[in-house]
Design a protein around this nucleic acid. Structure first.
Length: 258
DNA sequence: ATGACAGGTGAAACCTGA
């Protein structure tokens, strides 16, 4: 089974590249973030024509997540229980082939002194609580933009990020707490050392200079870890016409769940 | 130190992103 998570930075603006991704990789499950769509703007017909059905959490102009699959999406849950920002569309779950899939777009936080940072930490706390519940119920794959760089190796220049969001002990501690519940960071599992960035600023040629962050993750429940065959980005989708500022992250699992 | 790019809204300038 092939799963993809991708922060598309507007689904409508990115549809040509999304369709290209589906055609190129034929993933079984697709987790999207920053769709920036109202519910009625989700391109269900175009995605159905490509062979995918979609469940979305859409909030209008900002945020927005979706899960798409080539087979049935069962037991869809929209919204993160206990979220401090329930009006922001940042969480959707569905079961595919016996695995609980989550697409999540964590609050950015803006600045450690901003009220939005308090919301970010509370969102991460609610996410941890939900991941604990899900872990007790069966195999889980969480994909998304967590807006936290787990360690300094996940930041192109840690000195430049001192005092910024995404790298604080508050954020990293909460992410580590989720892994302690019985999840594995799939990319780090396969690649214990070295950068594996997923995001590069549009500005100043950051992509070609290697000025990136690793903030998009696949968190896989530990019962699935032995089935991880590969996990990594497709850099080609950070290039070319109208790319997102995030690259898609691909996860290949053995076909059998559990 | 600052801005740099892209998208949404809505029709100019501002907000958000990380």
């Amino acid at each position: 089974m092939l799963a993809v998570t991708w922060n598309v930075n507007s689904l409508r603006a990115r549809m040509p590249r999304v369709l290209e991704l589906l055609d190129t990789h034929r993933p079984d499950v697709v987790l999207l973030q920053e769709t920036k769509t109202a519910p009625e703007q989700v391109p269900h017909l175009e995605l159905a024509a490509a062979g995918y059905q979609v469940a979305d959490h859409s909030g209008g102009r900002w945020a927005g997540v979706a899960v798409a699959a080539t087979t049935d999406l069962a037991d869809v849950v929209v919204g993160l229980p206990g979220s401090p920002v329930p009006d922001q569309a940042r969480w959707v779950e569905a079961t595919v082939a016996g695995i609980r899939f989550v697409s999540v777009y964590v609050v950015n936080g803006r600045h450690p002194d901003d009220p939005a940072f308090v919301d970010k930490l509370a969102f991460l706390d609610a996410m941890r609580d939900r991941l604990r519940e899900l872990r007790s119920a069966g195999p889980v794959v969480v994909g998304g933009d967590v807006n936290v760089a787990p360690a300094d190796v996940d930041v192109w220049n840690p000195a430049a990020f001192r005092g910024s969001t995404h790298v604080t002990p508050h954020e990293r501690g909460r992410l580590a707490g989720m892994l302690d519940l019985g999840y594995v960071d799939a990319v780090r599992h396969l690649q214990p050392e070295g950068p594996a960035f997923t995001w590069w600023d549009y500005r100043a040629g950051a992509f070609h200079k290697g000025h990136g962050l690793r903030i998009d993750l696949f968190l896989v429940s530990d019962d699935l870890v032995e089935g991880i065959r590969s996990a990594g980005i497709d850099r080609g989708f950070r290039k070319g016409p109208k790319p997102s500022d995030h690259a898609p992250l691909l996860l290949e699992l053995d076909g059998r769940a559990g």
